[in-house]
């Protein structure tokens, strides 16, 4: 199984994603003879082999879904070795670097290889990713993962500090991506690594001070169209829209509010016969928990969407620039 292709059935040795819910996913390597324990009980790895991807798997106390490893699923389930880049930024990076099958891309640092997997998926089968990481163990782990995910034909992992030693590449890349603490130190070498006909560069930095230094260095080295954006994706949860009408004829004195105890409820209802007493108002979408969509499938209900309360408000700034043709002399 390869992370950059689509596959139908599960084979031994595949890295699969066990899906419980939005935020609960677990990558496992299928190995005959092993068992996997989940909160819904356990299942045998052997039971997965030969099953279709996207099937429900019966555990001892419930079902889970088994999904194929893909760049997007890997991004939300991978073991973090560093801060990672998430799919909304990956999307913008891929588009702004003009990536497609056949592109040669240089990336530093490899980090947890969240972006790397997505880049490989977009540039394979004719392109190649050169990924640089100065942390020895991280680079080795990434190399091992690429092999396990059957994408190593499309990627070369280097253990190297590009800020001090450069990329050591010349006229090779269509695009360079930098995710470094001091990206401006690697731009000169990145320029050398870009193809003679020019190319694109992107730098990801969480802080604006880094962006300022990077932009200055890009301008100094003759890059053009330097621009910086922030891109976020906001997830909305879908809620049933069911607000009660206020009844002006109710005896609101007798209202038993949410969570309030009304000790003499029965007595009071007996005494007050003229006016109806309001019932406890159901919780509505304003108060209810965000974690899950409230859809019971009934077609006559009215649904609305509301952003989930706490979501990323800042990830990093993306600075892009173009390097024009190296041999074309200005007038």
């Amino acid at each position: 199984m390869s992370f950059c292709k689509t596959n139908d059935t599960i084979k031994e040795g595949d890295t699969v994603i066990i899906y419980f819910s939005f935020n609960q996913l677990q990558p496992i390597k299928v190995k005959r003879g092993s068992n996997h324990h989940t909160k819904y009980g356990s299942f045998k790895h052997a039971d997965l082999i030969g099953k279709k991807y996207g099937s429900r798997i019966q555990c001892t106390q419930g079902t889970v879904i088994v999904l194929q490893g893909s760049p997007e699923m890997w991004t939300i389930s991978l073991p973090h070795r560093t801060q990672i880049i998430y799919t909304p930024n990956i999307s913008v990076i891929t588009m702004q670097l003009d990536l497609k099958p056949g592109s040669i891309v240089i990336e530093s640092g490899t980090g947890s290889a969240s972006l790397s997997h997505a880049l490989i998926r977009t540039i394979f089968p004719t392109g190649h990713l050169h990924t640089f990481e100065f942390h020895l163990q991280r680079s080795e782990t990434a190399r091992k993962e690429f092999k396990e995910h059957d994408v190593s034909d499309y990627v070369t992992v280097y253990h190297r500090d590009v800020c001090s030693d450069g990329f050591g590449k010349e006229d090779l890349a269509d695009a360079v991506f930098l995710d470094l603490p001091s990206p401006w130190k690697a731009i000169e070498s990145a320029k050398t690594a870009i193809k003679r006909e020019g190319g694109r560069i992107c730098s990801f930095s969480p802080c604006i001070e880094q962006v300022q230094k990077t932009s200055l260095e890009l301008a100094r080295l003759g890059f053009v169209n330097i621009f910086t954006v922030e891109s976020l994706r906001r997830v909305l949860s879908i809620k049933k829209y069911d607000l009660p009408d206020f009844d002006f004829n109710m005896d609101w004195l007798k209202y038993k509010g949410n969570g309030q105890e009304n000790e003499n409820q029965n007595d009071q209802i007996d005494k007050n016969e003229e006016k109806p007493v309001p019932k406890k108002i159901k919780k509505n979408f304003n108060e209810s928990d965000d974690s899950d969509d409230e859809v019971d499938g009934s077609t006559d209900a009215t649904y609305t969407a509301k952003p989930i309360n706490i979501q990323p408000g800042h990830t990093g700034f993306l600075t892009f620039a173009t390097l024009l043709h190296k041999d074309f002399h200005k007038v």
């Binding site: 891109s231 976020l232 994706r233």
Partner: peptide, 17 residues
């Protein structure tokens, strides 16, 4: 599964000293 409704947000910056 994993059905998500989302919107996206994009803000450009002027970066000058």
């Amino acid at each position: 599964i994993h059905i998500e409704l989302s919107d996206s947000w994009l803000r450009e910056y002027q970066v000058l000293p």
